[in-house]
Design a protein around this nucleic acid. Sequence first.
DNA 1: ACCTGTGCTTGACTTTTATCAATCAGTCGA
DNA 2: TCGACTGATTGATAAAAGTCAAGCACAGGT
Lengths: 232, 232
Amino acid sequence: MPDVDDTDIRQLDLFADMADETYADLMRGSYVQNFPPQIELITEGDPSDFLHIVESGSIDLFSRWEGRETSLATVRPVSTFILAATIRDAPYLMSARTLEKSRIVLVPSQDVRRAFAADGNFARAIVTELAQCYRTVVKSHKDLKLRTSLERLANYVLRQQKRRDGATAFNLDFEKRRLASVLGMTPENLSRAFKGLLPYGVSVDGTRITIKDQTSLEQFAKPNPMIDDFSV
Amino acid sequence: MPDVDDTDIRQLDLFADMADETYADLMRGSYVQNFPPQIELITEGDPSDFLHIVESGSIDLFSRWEGRETSLATVRPVSTFILAATIRDAPYLMSARTLEKSRIVLVPSQDVRRAFAADGNFARAIVTELAQCYRTVVKSHKDLKLRTSLERLANYVLRQQKRRDGATAFNLDFEKRRLASVLGMTPENLSRAFKGLLPYGVSVDGTRITIKDQTSLEQFAKPNPMIDDFSV
DNA sequence: ACCTGTGCTTGACTTTTATCAATCAGTCGA
DNA sequence: TCGACTGATTGATAAAAGTCAAGCACAGGT
């Protein structure tokens, strides 16, 4: 893998404690590729031939069924996706597409499984990563089942704000229709939901969100670490 | 752990390949307890002091938020729950209660983490288990986001039928209101949904489901292995 | 056999969410 | 500068799901 600056990758929790030899082994069969926006990298149901690592850009994980489609998550650098399918040697459960121009490292799944069997530290790192992924999905599942769309949006706004160190104004980092899909609603409804947050001091201008009344928003949203705190 | 017949447990994929010594170590600090029905074993947000293993009975994993409550999964013997919280040493994300009289093994989380660090085979077994759990939640998430409640019910019926080796009639194995909660709807709506399946040859008498027109039901439900096949 | 409680069902109604159609706003390229 | 396109918004309407209240059915205890 001569053309990849793999220092970032080596630093990932997943690989950091891996033996040098195993890491070199793993990277030997890997390759890097640049993809334009809106390219479908993998399709659910396909066999999991590669573990993917996003070096730059961003990836939409989504799923289709009977003509419907929903976004499940966004992957940002530097992290991996479809680890579970790779480990279980099972088909991908989600499809993935680039949202923007993205640089992806492709690691053959067979090599990952071999490294997993050979290197205890790697196996342990995978556990931590998977446990994290698992807990994240459980949280979104709770979000979806326990809250109305307005509540989901309110809490989403608060989570974003936290990511921006509490700024009272910030820009959404993706299209509204994708946000709608992630939150489990239609674009039309997202528009209306934003209006529904006006009484709680949230205003929207294009892609820019402004929180004018933090207290009021929090009182409405009732954020809960067991759903909203992605670090826990 | 003198009072537990642990042969079942030793057979679990999670422990099968573990070194004898590590296993003995792990079980030394564990204990078994019998619980009556409807006992809340753990509450979300609490620190994860024990890994739980269901020896007999059944467990409801659920979550509460602002007075609302939803069931997320049912755990049946012999298997573990809350593995992810234990491994990450993070608070439980779900609450758990006994549905019936249940026999539970409690393994101190610290011991599990120690065994995990010491025994590579155990670490690998945990990976497989977690990957499985993760994929299961992703599937229910897709079910919830991509389907209407009628479609979810139809596919649920088909999944149950599969579990009973394709029998055309079988009994639901839990209360309808809990089924409603699992499927993300109200009990009233579940009643109506069952009626909605009548045109597709599904009839319900109390707890007994009869499938009279398999083809018609499948045509409506459009089951998909990437959502409904729990073995994949 | 008869209460009594619990869970299930039903009907009427409300709220929430989706759909369809039209319009608007901003971007990009000719 | 002007279309042409794409995504966002709005309004009207419909469908889906939830709520509330009443009635029913069955099981368990007396």
